[in-house]
Structures are given as C-alpha cells and as structure tokens.
Design a protein around this nucleic acid. Sequence first.
DNA 1: CGCGCGATTGTA
DNA 2: ACAATCGCGCGT
Length: 175
Amino acid sequence: MKLEEQFYELSTVEVAQKLIGKTLIYNNFKGIITETEAYRGEDDAASHAYKGPTSRSSIMFGPPAHVYVYMIYGIYYCLNIVTEKEGSAGAVLVRGIMLPDIHLNGPGKLCRHLNIDKKDHGINLLSSTNFNIINNELELNQFNATPRVGIKKATDKLWRFVMDNNLMVNKLKKL
DNA sequence: CGCGCGATTGTA
DNA sequence: ACAATCGCGCGT
C-alpha cells in the first residue's frame, strides 16, 4: 500500500533509510529502491537548502512527499522526495532502483531511463496516480551506510544508504 | 548582468 | 583524467 504522509514527515535520514527496499512506481515503470542519500537543511553544508530557501531549494522547506527534480551538470536530472514537515528542510535523493530487467545505479541514469525531468517537479506523491512509492510484501530494511557521493562538504556524514548485495539478488528473483 | 560551478556519467 | 552543457546563486 501507498506510503502515507506520516512516513515522509519523519527525519530525513530516517526516511532515506526506510526508502531502501520500497517500490517506486512511475507510469509504466515499477522498481525497488536500492540506494538513497539524505540531504538536510541549514545544518547540512552539502544540501541545496544549506543557505536557506532559494528559488531552487524552497521546495525542500515545503510540505513532505513532494517530488523535487533538479538539473545537474547541464545534462542530467536528479529525483528527490521532500521530507519533514513544512518549514523544516529535507529531501532524499533517489540514487538507484532495480527494475525487472535492469539495475539503475546512479541518479542521472535513473531519471534518463524513466524519463523523469522538470515536468515532474512538484508532484505530490500522496495525490498522484502515476507517481507513487508503496510498501511491498518483501519488506527488508537492511542497508550499508557510507559517505554521500560527489560532494565536497560534510563528507563525514554517513548519509548514503545502499541495499545489501545479497538482498538485491533475492529481490531480483522475486520481481 | 556576467561568471563559475555542480547531489553525474561515459569516454580516453 | 576530462569533456559535455545549463540553470542557479552570488558578486559586481
């Protein structure tokens, strides 16, 4: 069943951890989230929200369960899910999902393959019919925590979460 | 209003 | 190691 608002209201790090193993549905695509990163607010130097709300980051201060899509390096899009209650900044970067036929590792590749771009920015997962995240019956929250990728600040934080390799194999069999 | 750079990726 | 490529954010 679809994840509810209370799930996305949790702390950003907790949401990032708990999204591992959840099922993401986007139009005709259905895959299991295998990798995420947590980005917080003014206390997280690596976050877009670090310097407060701007035209780009204001959505991170808005209500949870909304889609935040931004362009990176002029070429790729990255998919994020806004977390925490309105006024408290946070978002989870979805870095990897496993589809029945391919494992997409990397936020740019993921968006390119699913055709996620600016048109999806601002979508509310709670009310959308073609963009959802749901609990599956294979619930297994096991992951490794590592530093976040591609950042130069706050590299001490272990806020990247990757599904355990063995679990990936098992889930792939059941897809 | 101009300019430097980035939560990336594929190629050399 | 580096190019591709553009919108954002900050300084002027």
